[in-house]
């Protein structure tokens, strides 16, 4: 900052005054800035708190009396909704995890390969174009992915099922859901992987090449190894998106009433499709129970994030 030149006489006192003000202003600012930070940080507690409050209501005798849902059978049940109060969510959690795991398995190799291709093989000019396309894909509203899944992927799945002499409900199946999700998280993982691979020090690769490793060896053993933590962040984000995706999934999942459905060609039900389906009434048990499902969804996301973050640490350590 530019310090103004003051008349000599006043300079000393001014300076000390200013010194005090400056010192205080710093701690004042610090306190002031702390407020929005605390606000931002507390939103998570806020969200979880409010959803818990509504989500726990169906289990409380004080709210629903004899109609209340048994918390244990809610968490361990394998049938969704037999009136008045049987809601089982275990099979839905299993379905959700199964679908998300498989779609991640499909998407990760594709994304990483694409990222390698873009950063290491594609000329610089095309890189920008590719990145823009990927970002565009990430911006397509999810309902459009649902329409695409129903219009094209489901039809292909019907043909595939015919090859195996299996019958699908017009392609509405676990497999279709997996493919739609894999496509939806592809941009997320690819974008993060591109960033991670671009950040790898080229010198490392030059050394590897100089030591006689082939280009392929270098890519897999050196480049990918050092980009691993970044790629893992991408996977965590992708898994998060897949777990939370609602609109497209509910269009192609079929919403089976019981399960778990591990067969690829059978219909299925996920946490989010359960939350979205038939959400028209705005009070009563059938509405409140959706908050309970939301609570379980938050739990699943936190746990999976935690596990993946743990893996990420391990991966980072051994590379």
């Amino acid at each position: 900052m530019i310090v103004k030149i003051e008349p000599e006489a006043n300079r000393r006192t001014q300076k000390s005054k200013r010194f005090i003000w400056m010192k205080h202003s710093d701690s004042f600012m610090k306190g002031l800035l702390m407020v929005p930070t605390l606000m931002s940080a507390s939103f998570v507690i806020f969200i979880v708190g409010f959803i818990s409050r509504k989500g726990i209501a169906p289990f409380l005798p004080s709210v629903y009396g004899s109609e209340r849902v048994n918390a244990f059978s809610f968490l361990s049940g394998t049938t969704w909704f037999v009136p008045p109060n049987v809601y089982g969510i275990l099979f839905i959690v299993i379905n959700t995890l199964y679908i998300v795991a498989l779609s991640t398995l499909i998407s990760v190799p594709l994304s990483v390969a694409s990222a390698l291709f873009v950063t290491r093989i594609l000329p610089k000019k095309l890189q920008g174009v590719f990145k823009s396309i990927i970002e565009l894909l990430a911006a397509i509203p999810s309902v459009i992915y649902g329409v695409f899944g129903l219009g094209i992927i489901a039809k292909s799945v019907v043909r595939l099922a015919e090859l195996f002499h299996a019958q699908t409900a017009g392609g509405i199946s676990t497999l279709t859901t997996i493919i739609v999700l894999a496509i939806m998280i592809y941009p997320t993982i690819t974008m993060m992987s591109v960033a991670a691979i671009s950040a790898v020090d080229p010198a490392l690769e030059h050394h590897s090449l100089a030591l006689g490793a082939t280009k392929v060896q270098t890519m897999t053993k050196v480049t990918l190894a050092s980009a691993k933590p970044g790629i893992f962040t991408g996977i965590i984000l992708g898994v998060g998106r897949a777990l939370g995706e609602a609109t497209a999934v509910s269009m192609v999942a079929g919403n089976a009433g019981s399960g778990p459905s591990l067969m690829l060609f059978s219909t299925t039900r996920t946490l989010t499709s359960t939350m979205l389906l038939g959400l028209k009434e705005t009070s009563g048990m059938d509405y409140d129970i959706r908050f309970s499902v939301g609570l379980v969804l938050i739990g699943v996301i936190f746990v999976s994030n935690f596990i993946l973050a743990h893996f990420k640490k391990k991966v980072g350590r051994f590379s």
């Binding site: 931002s40 939103f43 998570v44 806020f46 969200i47 409010f50 959803i51 509504k54 965590i236 984000l237 998060g240 998106r241 777990l243 939370g244 995706e245 609602a246 989010t272 939350m275 979205l276 959706r290 908050f291 939301g294 969804l297 938050i298 996301i301 994030n305």
Partner: peptide, 12 residues
């Protein structure tokens, strides 16, 4: 907060 799915924001 960045990992919370948007449907949950909607509920909030």
């Amino acid at each position: 907060l960045s990992g919370v799915p948007s449907i949950v924001y909607g509920l909030m």
